[in-house]
């Protein structure tokens, strides 16, 4: 579904991605772990060209997104993204947050979008907040809103960049639960996370990144129980204690 070929990204003289070639298949759930600053977010953001790779290519459903004449906006509609800091729209109600893009991009009529929003809000337990402004929501509720806002575009894949890192501990569970139902529904997911237990539980494959490279990857059991690369061992040693 998504393929990166020899992806490099520099910020000025700082090399952040150091040649990443990865294939993400439909239905896979990929967790990306690694120390902070290793390039996980940058890699994720390159997948929908929020960051433009310095070289290499990103192929999504057979289309090289880097090619001239490609309408990136069209492809982004199929890649939902959830950010660490939620980025819900404060000037819109909860429901408008969800319906804005589908209606504006002519995916649904306002009425269809409203109905779908109701359904999505019910699914994540936010029905009673539909007409509120996001400022009234807790962090966990904002993140659940951000997730359904992305889902309203019927994406083919969901990209999560540390979706629970900005949350108070008691709200982490509710957000992870929503992601888990997505996974169970067969959604292709790429999740940058520090929640090792969660990664182990839901992933079909785990990538360990360090210094702009995928240093090691494998099934959660392989990677967490029997890491081969010394960097992976050191990292897991620190985070798993």
């Amino acid at each position: 579904m998504i393929e990166t070929i020899d992806l490099y990204k520099d910020f000025g003289s700082l090399r952040v991605l150091n040649g990443i070639s990865e294939h993400i298949e439909k239905g896979e759930v990929i967790s990306i772990i690694g120390p902070s600053g290793s390039g996980k977010s940058t890699f994720l953001r390159c997948l929908n060209l929020l960051e433009i790779p310095t070289s290499g290519s990103v192929v999504f459903e057979g289309v090289n997104l880097m090619e001239k004449g490609v309408d990136i906006n069209l492809h982004r509609q199929k890649m939902g993204m959830v950010f660490q800091h939620f980025n819900v729209f404060p000037h819109l109600t909860v429901k408008q947050n969800i319906t804005l893009a589908p209606v504006l991009l002519k995916k649904r009529s306002q009425q269809e979008a409203d109905e779908y929003a109701d359904e999505l809000l019910a699914r994540v337990g936010l029905s009673d907040k539909a007409e509120e402004h996001p400022r009234r929501l807790s962090g966990g509720q904002k993140q659940r809103l951000a997730i359904v806002r992305a889902l309203a575009m019927d994406p083919e894949v969901m990209l999560f960049d540390e979706p629970t890192s900005a949350l108070d501990p008691e709200m982490v569970g509710e957000v992870l639960a929503v992601i888990k139902t997505l996974v169970q529904g067969g959604m292709t997911c790429v999740i940058v996370t520090h929640e090792m237990g969660f990664a182990r539980e839901v992933s079909s494959r785990v990538l360990f990144m360090d210094e702009g490279k995928v240093q090691e990857q494998g099934s959660p059991d392989e990677l967490f129980s029997n890491p081969q690369n010394p960097r992976t061992k050191a990292f897991l040693g620190k985070v798993l204690r």
Binding site: L50, R76, Q77, G80, F83, N87, F89, L100, L105, A150
Partner: peptide, 25 residues
């Protein structure tokens, strides 16, 4: 800037992002 990023990831183009998300704020 996260606001514009969120709008762009939903598929809004630059102008739509400016008009519907950035300007009202």
């Amino acid at each position: 800037p996260g606001q514009a990023e969120a709008a762009r990831t939903l598929g809004l183009n630059g102008r739509q992002t400016m008009l519907r998300i950035v300007m009202p704020q």
